[in-house]
């Protein structure tokens, strides 16, 4: 038996909304330690990795008697989650050898309980091992700032060059009709931690990435006030949105490299 009671259905809604356009079908891997999801986009350029820990406060109850994989169409899951109120408590439930995933939405005052079942899918996908590595540069910034940068620069070109150096981080685009550059300096004087830009730098990095994917990742902006960008030369960038009381959602994007 698998049963996970999440206090805020809005968190699950936001996660699925941010994934469903790039990742059509995905396996939720459930174990006693929590729920993980790893998936590649159809072009195999981007990868997402979601971790929701069972021992965090976002789950009111969590039970997973044996490891199970729940293959779900994320578009369908998004439709089901639209049936939940933002303040509803959502319970996910499945048997040990499941064909069906059940969603139960309880309204805050318990006057309305709704239940939906969806059929599970067999999804043949290979899990990739993501090594724990030290990155040359980690930028922490407000998530809405990153969203704005990606959105602004995507009007002029297809790829952004991210340049991390000791003064801060530069985002540059050069297209056929024009070019643009946004410089972010490290901030030390800002009161609120979530408004700060910090750059942890071991080595400078200059790397180009497709804006189409970065813009898609920023659909996760509402999950977190801050976003962390981890970069090393000639390796995928990690765009991480921490999810309070649950874990995190990470996106990996392969770089564009001179051939």
């Amino acid at each position: 038996m698998f049963e996970a009671k999440m206090l805020q259905s809005s968190v699950l809604k936001k996660i699925i909304e941010s994934l469903k356009d790039l990742f059509a079908d995905a396996n939720f891997d459930c174990s006693s330690s929590g729920i993980t999801l790893q998936d590649m986009d159809s072009s195999h350029v981007a990868l997402c990795y979601l971790k929701l820990r069972s021992d965090e406060e976002g789950f009111e109850d969590y039970r997973c008697d044996r490891n199970i994989t729940l293959g779900v169409n994320l578009g369908l899951m998004s439709k089901i989650l639209k049936c939940a109120g933002n303040d509803d408590v959502v319970t996910l439930r499945a048997e040990d050898e499941p064909n069906i995933l059940t969603f139960i939405f309880d309204s805050k005052n318990s006057e309305r309980v709704s239940k939906y079942d969806i059929k599970l899918m067999e999804i043949d996908s290979e899990l990739l091992g993501i090594p724990d590595t030290d990155y040359s540069c980690v930028v922490k910034m407000p998530s809405h700032e990153f969203q704005r940068i990606c959105s602004n620069l995507s009007q002029l070109g297809d790829s952004v060059t991210i340049d991390c150096h000791k003064e801060g981080v530069d985002f540059k685009v050069a297209g056929e009709q024009g070019s643009g550059a946004i410089k972010l300096k490290q901030t030390t004087s800002v009161d609120k931690e979530e408004d700060q830009v910090t750059v942890q730098l071991n080595e400078p990095v200059t790397q180009s990435f497709a804006l189409k994917f970065l813009c898609a990742f920023t659909k996760a902006t509402s999950l977190s006030d801050t976003v962390n960008l981890s970069l090393t030369q000639d390796t995928p960038v990690v765009v991480e949105y921490p999810i309070a009381q649950h874990g995190y959602l990470r996106f990996y994007l392969a770089p564009k490299i001179e051939e």
Binding site: H44, L127, L128, I130, P131, S208, L253, A254, K256, E259
Partner: peptide, 14 residues
């Protein structure tokens, strides 16, 4: 020539 890399060329199958 700038080429888009694949994510699978960086991470191995687990």
């Amino acid at each position: 020539m700038i080429g888009q890399q694949k994510i699978s060329s960086f991470f191995r199958v687990a």
